[in-house]
Design a binder for these strands. Structure first.
Length: 585
RNA sequence: GGUGAUGUAGUUCAGCUGGUUAGAAUGCCGGCCUGUCACGCCGGAGGUCGCGGGUUCGAAUCCCGUCGUCACCGCCA
């Protein structure tokens, strides 16, 4: 028997017991006559003690043990003379009687401790060692718990988990597909699913009523801290539901996760906000509502004073930074520099200080009298001691830049605390988005999203104005889930493809199987998918989803541990009837 | 596709306006130590300064290119 107990469970009440433990050597402390070894497994750390007086041979052997050796030790649980209150097992130690080396270890390239000394790249290359560290280990335990509780809740709501295929048909809409060549069907390719969307809809047609799946999805797009080419969704679909039903069931899921995993309850239902309202107040379809600082529009209040920047602007808006009227020139310059960064693209920042003595100082004093500044400040609701930050320009760009500025100010003022969670539903997204480059509309969510019934006529006259039965769940500025009520009628689905610029033949070729299914009694249905990786990283307080994925890809989509992707042999290529184009130059 | 940051002992980093033998901490190896828990003390080994080219009497340092890593923009229905 390798062990009678784990390294985390022995406590003072076990004193006197004969036990066997197996695990990894975290660290050893050789004091000459005494040697201590901290033995680690998934469950914790337990101190072993070897004494030169009682067993010199064993003690000498223990002195030779290196970090990360795997050993098995038999011994007696003893109460410590010097207790360590910092350790859960700090009241006891194991007086070793026998030791067996189960496997040695070469010196690890970085320290395997709470805070490692290793850099990202190195730890990624030795991921299996990094995963021994408590922070990463705990993230994976948390992930398991969240997946388990999700299934638990959804099972209680009569969802059944159904596996959908991973080798599917490639479609040009949406993100780029990962493709897989078919050997048997020479020259043809499968795609890996960006989501099981059509299959879960077909399961509704099949009458399963409530489907869920914790499922890998694949998108061949560039990576970010919160984006991996393969990621996991809690994918769900329900029949005979309106939007309200879906929101209620999945508000229940999120609430259940918070209470069962973090012990956090929400006293109020999740607030709801339309897409239009989110854009107007926060310049963002996934606002962080842990803090206010909502936009105040000033377009109609500040024009006509010969200030060209304002007079030529489509939109002028501002945020009120409470208590920041004392910001120094340097701090204001930093903010200007921030919004001027190319990825934000702001041209300039205008400030109005509402001094505590009731006076006003601004960067546009040349154009506005103190009285006019006071009126502007009053319009925004600013108080003495506040700082107004104004941006002006083309509508969409200015909203976006002002949104970045708001988040930056939130960070600077410490208003985005990690332990605070503010969920939010964003509703009524536009159905379509105009793409200037290709001169056509694209589905904002996906082509199976239903338009709001009252907006259907706009499909013919002003498609850009059509609102969808689509909703996102946002927590702390992170989009953690999104879904919609789907189209379940062949006619409307065909109309949708027409608006998206598909010919009937193209629509038939790509999605004929779905529209065929709609002819056989498709029930009204809708659903949602949550990003498990993002949810777990939010719960764990991690900034990157890589920290909650066992074996993630790096910035360039590479697995640096296994060194994938890699070239394949000419034999393999030949078998697949594939030739590789030589790169230019 | 683009912008920025970065690359120096096993590891994390310092290394100024170019100047003798490239440092620190930690880890590793050896010695001492009976209550440590980041044990302590003494000693030691350890470097293709990412790679290639250029400027210079002289380059870790300046310039050009290239590769890797990270963050972001584009992209992500």
């Amino acid at each position: 028997m390798y062990r009678t107990h784990t390294c985390g469970e022995l406590k003072i009440g076990d004193a006197g017991k004969s036990v066997t433990l197996s695990g990894w050597i975290q660290r050893s402390r050789d004091l000459g006559g005494l040697t201590f070894i901290d033995l680690r497994d998934r469950y914790g750390l337990t101190q072993l003690i070897f004494n030169m007086d009682t067993d010199p041979a064993l003690c000498n052997e223990a002195r030779k043990m290196g970090r990360e050796f795997v050993i098995q030790v038999d011994g007696i649980v003893r109460e410590r003379s010097n207790k360590n209150p910092k350790m859960p097992t700090g009241d006891i130690e194991i007086q070793a009687e026998h030791m067996k080396v189960l496997n040695g270890s070469i010196t690890p390239p970085f320290t395997i401790e709470e805070e490692s000394d290793g850099g990202d790249e190195l730890r990624m290359k030795f991921r299996y060692l990094d995963l021994r560290r408590p922070p990463l280990k705990n993230n994976l335990l948390l992930r398991h718990q969240m997946a388990f509780e999700s299934r638990n809740y959804l099972n209680s709501q009569h969802f059944i988990e159904v596996e959908t295929p991973v080798l599917i048909k490639s479609t040009p809409e949406g993100a780029r597909d990962f493709v897989v060549p078919s050997r048997v069907n020479s020259g043809q390719f499968y795609a890996l699913p960006q989501s099981p969307q059509t299959f879960k809809q077909l399961l509704m047609v099949a009458g399963f009523d409530r489907y869920m799946q914790i499922v890998k999805c694949f998108r061949d797009e560039d990576l970010r801290a919160d984006r991996q080419p393969e990621f996991t969704q809690i994918d769900c679909e329900m029949s005979f539901v309106h939007q309200e039903d879906v929101l209620n069931v999945f508000e229940g899921l999120i609430t259940h996760l918070f209470s069962s995993v973090k012990g956090i309850g929400f006293s109020e239902p999740f607030p709801r906000m339309t897409f239009a309202e989110a854009m107007q107040k926060y310049g963002n379809d996934k606002p962080d509502i842990r803090f206010g600082m909502e936009f105040k529009e000033l377009t109609d209040h500040v024009k006509g004073k010969n200030f060209a920047v304002f007079d030529s602007a489509e939109y002028i808006g501002c945020i009120v930074a409470e208590g920041c009227s004392e910001y120094t020139r340097k701090q204001l310059d930093e903010l200007t520099e921030f919004i001027r960064k190319p990825q934000i693209g702001g041209k300039g920042l205008i400030y109005i200080r509402c001094n505590t003595d009731g006076t006003f100082k601004s960067s546009v004093d040349k154009f506005y009298t103190p009285e006019e500044l006071q009126i502007i400040a009053a319009t925004t609701g600013a108080k003495a001691g506040d700082l107004l930050l104004l941006m002006a320009g083309e509508l969409i760009h200015t909203l976006k830049a002002l949104s970045e500025l708001r988040l930056e100010m939130g960070n600077r003022l410490g208003l985005r605390k990690k332990g605070i969670f503010k969920p939010l539903w964003v509703l009524d997204f536009p159905l379509l988005e105009w793409n200037e480059e290709n001169k056509r509309f694209y589905a904002m969510h996906h082509p199976f999203t239903s338009p709001k019934p009252e907006d259907i006529d706009l499909l013919n006259t002003d498609p850009g104005k059509v609102r969808a039965n689509a909703y996102d769940c946002v927590i702390n500025g992170v989009e953690i889930g999104g879904g919609s009520i789907r189209i379940h009628e062949e006619g409307l689905q065909k109309r949708m493809f027409q608006v998206l610029g598909f010919t009937d033949t193209e629509a038939e070729n790509q999605f004929g199987f779905l529209m065929q299914a709609f002819r056989y009694g498709a029930p009204p249905h809708g659903g949602i998918a949550f990003g498990l990786d993002r949810l777990v990283s939010l719960f764990a307080g991690e900034d990157s989803i890589r920290d909650v994925i066992a074996f993630p890809k790096n910035n360039a989509g590479r697995d640096v541990m296994a060194d994938a992707p890699s070239e394949i042999s000419t034999e393999q290529l030949k078998e697949l009837s594939i030739s590789i184009l030589k790169a230019d130059k």
